[in-house]
Design a protein around this nucleic acid. Structure first.
Length: 219
DNA sequence: AGGGCGATTAACT
DNA sequence: GTTAATCGCCCTC
């Protein structure tokens, strides 16, 4: 049931079904400086076991947001009901509605009391590709299924109702890279789609990946 | 390939 | 009333 579609093999990688996905990263992983976590999450595997089936993908694009020093971050200027999860303990999902339309997923970082998180902006589909296509639309190319934070949540069935979910033990989790080896070169760029702190180099992408939002970088 | 624009909701000024 | 951590569609080059 979980083996829907053929996993995409790229660069010799091929992972099959849920068996290839490892247990969640521990809470201590997220209890670190946010920029460090954002960089380290490139190559890790985001997975969601829903009632409809399993979907998973390799994280290829992230951004760091640290409210204490970052006017572009939600939570800058103090907590609000929307951003409460960002001020909570690390290792939880902060999910917000973007432009009144899309859901976007963050992994909360740093100790409770500090509002910080990593926006997961894109994954390379790995498992449940046909389920992703069912959710996104029949004509969508594999490359476009989860390329962008809103598309990613749509493809993986991640909704606002899951805001606050524990990423270290549940149906939504992030696992270490499959083979533990280096995933490739990581490129640093300014963040996308913001109007404040526009030059801060806190976006991380996998060089050469065609599964990131925007143009392919390096490779 | 790349730019312009409407959609649609809630937080915030 | 305005803005927003976006996306898909339509247009022109």
């Amino acid at each position: 049931m979980y083996n829907e579609g053929t996993p995409i093999a790229q660069g010799g990688e091929a992972i099959n079904e849920a068996h290839g996905i490892r247990p969640p990263l521990p809470r201590a992983y997220y209890d670190r400086p946010t920029v460090e976590v954002a960089r380290d999450l490139i190559g890790c595997v985001l997975a969601h076991a829903s009632a409809e089936g399993l979907t998973a993908g390799v994280i290829v694009e992230t951004e760091a947001y640290v409210a204490a020093v970052d006017p572009a971050a939600h939570g800058y200027g103090g907590p609000t009901p929307r951003t409460a999860v960002m001020f909570g303990p690390p290792g939880h999902a902060y999910i917000y509605r973007s432009y009144g339309v899309h859901a976007c997923l963050n992994a909360v970082t740093e100790p409770a009391g500090l509002a910080a998180a990593v926006l997961i902006r894109a994954v390379r589909p790995l498992c449940g590709i046909e389920l992703m296509r069912t959710r996104r639309g029949p004509g969508i190319a594999d490359r476009d299924l989860a390329r962008g934070p809103g598309r990613l949540c749509a493809a993986m069935g991640i909704t606002l109702a899951m805001n606050g979910a524990d990423l270290t033990g549940g149906t939504l989790w992030i696992a270490p890279p499959h083979d533990g080896s280096a995933t490739g070169t990581i490129v640093t760029t300014p963040r996308i789609g913001i109007s404040k702190a526009v030059t801060l180099p806190w976006r991380f992408v996998l060089a050469g990946s065609r599964y990131i939002s925007g143009r392919v970088i390096g490779g």
